[in-house]
Design a protein around this nucleic acid. Structure first.
Lengths: 237, 237
DNA sequence: GTCAAACATCTTGTATACAGGACTTGAGCA
DNA sequence: TGCTCAAGTCCTGTATACAAGATGTTTGAC
């Protein structure tokens, strides 16, 4: 019987789900379930097309089918799971074309973040952006793709916040998370880390200079490159 | 945007939700519930902040609490309902600032649709766009704001499809629906229908001419005006 | 040997039971 | 009179029971 993995994201689910059926502990059982299953889908431990049997999951997490069903519904709403009425749940298949469509939308949203960040960023946010950029520099020089990948996300998140548009930030964060496994492939490509960092440099300069047009263009291009690289990758298969 | 397949057949909800508990008709009871409650929230029959009591809803729709809970979870994922653990569900409050943020994102997504439509629209799609535009003309001349509102949505949807980006289309459709009650307020403003139609004219010309830059700019402006008007409306209160 | 229909089994969707947290109300106290 | 605390009630979250659709298998006919 497997328990729920400790989460990298700081949450207040202080304890695991290892509980006797009648004991009430966490506020909602389905929440950690959503996070765990989502993580496993995004990390490809659960592969697209995999059947998600409710009873099996219920046994695995030592809860009843009720919170499992609620978790699956939430995952379906996020697009990670396909729910076929009366026929069970599958890990959603994401076609290469759809991925490219998602990268396309991501590029536009990030570009808009860049424009707004250049226009609205406060001095503190500008400093935070530079700090995030400096951290990326260390990882890039140290030739540590995994660490760069993580810091790269932090860099972009600093930009999202600078947009001062909470809704936009939520949307683009969601897409960032959704596309993570595919973006991760990119950095394995030769020289990609170095190129990415150079692009960041141009972005930082444009944003700090308050150059909305350039910030927008640089970011659009920065994201779009990933979509194109991904497309090359797919085409080569 | 949810990947829950409601039905093998893309049919309307055959009728209301009033059914005897034991009658098996729809594939899932929660689906029509989601649609009904969503409709009532979007039409303001259920006002922001209203408590959504599970037992009460269960009685009203003559089902058990189980499908009600599943519906509420889906609505919460769509942002229409706020779920407070152990403390019940509320119709989500949308602050004026958040609405403006949503209009801002909407403007960018529609603008991108416009650009792609100008680049990729097929002759059939161009014809469909013109046809939708012509229908709007009739409603505008006839001074029928409600009908114009409906046809206006069809016009925009024709543009979304022209983008040939399914993910983008889903996202922007979702936002169109979400913002509907607030957009509806716009057309009551004096001369707004006439202005809107004039803007459509410019959009159609740009898209048909394949002028990506102009199509994008016209659409961004067309949507942004609504956000600004809304902001004026809020400020005047 | 192939196909189809009927049956058995599995799994989902819904109803209901039950436990525990949250809100309400009223009494005691300052 | 106002505040605090406690008991009672209500409602949510979870488990479980049950019904019916979906799937797989076996058997029978051609």
């Amino acid at each position: 019987m497997s328990t729920i993995n400790p989460n990298p994201v700081p949450t207040e689910t202080d304890e695991g789900v290892r509980r006797a059926p009648a004991v009430q502990g966490a506020v909602r059982l389905s929440q950690p379930l959503v996070e765990t299953i989502e993580e496993e889908i995004l990390t490809r431990q659960l592969k697209p097309g995999t059947r998600l049997d409710e009873t099996e999951l219920a046994q695995r997490f030592a809860v009843s089918r009720t919170p499992i069903r609620e978790a699956l519904i939430q995952l379906a709403s996020a697009g990670l799971v396909e729910l076929r009425p009366r026929r069970g749940a599958l890990v959603a298949q994401v076609s290469p074309q759809r991925l490219m469509e998602m990268f396309d939308v991501m590029a536009e949203l990030e570009a808009h973040c860049g424009r707004l960040a250049a226009r609205r960023g406060t001095p503190e946010e500008q400093q935070a952006l530079q700090a995030a950029h400096a951290e990326c520099a260390l990882a890039a020089e140290g030739d540590d793709p995994d660490r760069y990948f993580y810091l790269n996300e932090r860099f972009h998140q600093a930009l999202y916040r600078m947009s001062h548009n909470g809704f936009l930030t939520e949307q683009v964060l969601h897409l960032q998370r959704r596309l993570r496994p595919y973006r991760r492939l990119q950095l394995r490509v030769r020289q990609r880390v170095a190129h990415s960092f150079a692009e960041h440099q141009a972005i930082v300069e444009a944003v700090l200079a308050g150059d909305e047009v350039r910030a927008e263009a640089q970011l659009r291009n920065h994201i779009r490159i990933q979509g194109e690289r991904f497309s090359d990758l797919v085409a080569s298969l």
